[in-house]
Design a protein around this nucleic acid. Sequence first.
DNA 1: AAGCAATATAACTATATAGTTACATATTAC
DNA 2: GTAATATGTAACTATATAGTTATATTGCTT
Lengths: 215, 215
Amino acid sequence: MREKNKPSKYSHQRDSEATKKRILEAAKQEFASHGLSGARVDVIAEKAEANKRMIYHYFGNKEELFTVVLEDAYIDIRSEEKELHLEKLDPETALKTLVEFTWNYYLKNPTFLRIINSENLHQARHLKESSVIDDLRGPFVGMIDDILKRGEKENVFRKNVDTIQLIITIASVGYYYFTNRYTGSILFSKDFMSQEALDERLAFNIETILRLVKK
Amino acid sequence: MREKNKPSKYSHQRDSEATKKRILEAAKQEFASHGLSGARVDVIAEKAEANKRMIYHYFGNKEELFTVVLEDAYIDIRSEEKELHLEKLDPETALKTLVEFTWNYYLKNPTFLRIINSENLHQARHLKESSVIDDLRGPFVGMIDDILKRGEKENVFRKNVDTIQLIITIASVGYYYFTNRYTGSILFSKDFMSQEALDERLAFNIETILRLVKK
DNA sequence: AAGCAATATAACTATATAGTTACATATTAC
DNA sequence: GTAATATGTAACTATATAGTTATATTGCTT
């Protein structure tokens, strides 16, 4: 029986959507910091200022929570990519814009890279079961294909550059730099994250991609 | 007290070096498969046909075991790189050889990539404390620098290509392909590991690197 | 305002896990 | 041969962990 004058345990208003959001954000951070295995459900609950019971209530279990975090990550980058409207830019500018966007997205969203890495460590078993990817299958493939075709027609790009290989390469040159920056900084005795180093790398990446496609 | 006629529990001969090696190999596999946090010491002991007690005896603890596995990984790739003798090849062949070697090393040593990824998830905290890297600091930097200089002199390479950026790029285009092959295969609906896909990617990478440095 | 579903808390449980201890057997030095 | 040391096994322990249960409060429906 409730005691008289005892203050309520529930100090804040209820808001299931807000609670879900806080859990997802906390989970994203925790999974990114420690990987799927290293992440602790208790810590996620604490960071989210929620309760472990709520995590299981809203998301089922740790694996399903990870799946939602992963899906959200892909949805987010995909929606930002859409906003670039590369189809409105001339081929060379479009390609340069994509390289810069990819680079800056990785720079501003370190959790993205770490979560994708975790998923690959686990052989993409969560993504495999996800239906969300259907909408992002071949993200941008059509768009990049169009840029390459326009470049060919305008005689600024060479013929027969493989679209998927190009997309992979654009991702590679940024992704690797960021995910391997810790070992890289030691192996090369160089701070990979200084503004100077970042600027230099982005410029080099743009050059790499343009040299690859230009006549 | 030992019972009469009871067969010895120790069926095989003792060999500390062999046991250490078995532990290291098992640890490499286990860390590569599950990451540092996901790896289980009991599983390593079992796989090594050794005993947990031996792991702690020879390596101290899980973290130190990981450190040795990591150090061994770097030592191995470094020693294979040395065998290439790129200094004896003409600049273009040397560069092509390095791209091929890097690609094939990653292909044949999937554990390497996963262990480096784990170490980067943990912000290289093991490598930071390791003295082994002193010998591999700037691996090949001098060598690649030499290739670029020779190429310049022979008028086949352009001037002022940054050596470290080039090394990072050579690693990137292979590393990313392999570590992200699980999510990549889903996103692009394409088997990244078919012989055809592998051949195509290697050829593309060679083209990417040569276009980057050639006049 | 009564009943009910949704939201929340905290305490609990079964199990897994890194690391330890006690002890046994083999090998080496003398 | 014997003592000391290296190598090995198995059982144990303290703790951490994912997931559950019991219960309380809120807010919505009627």
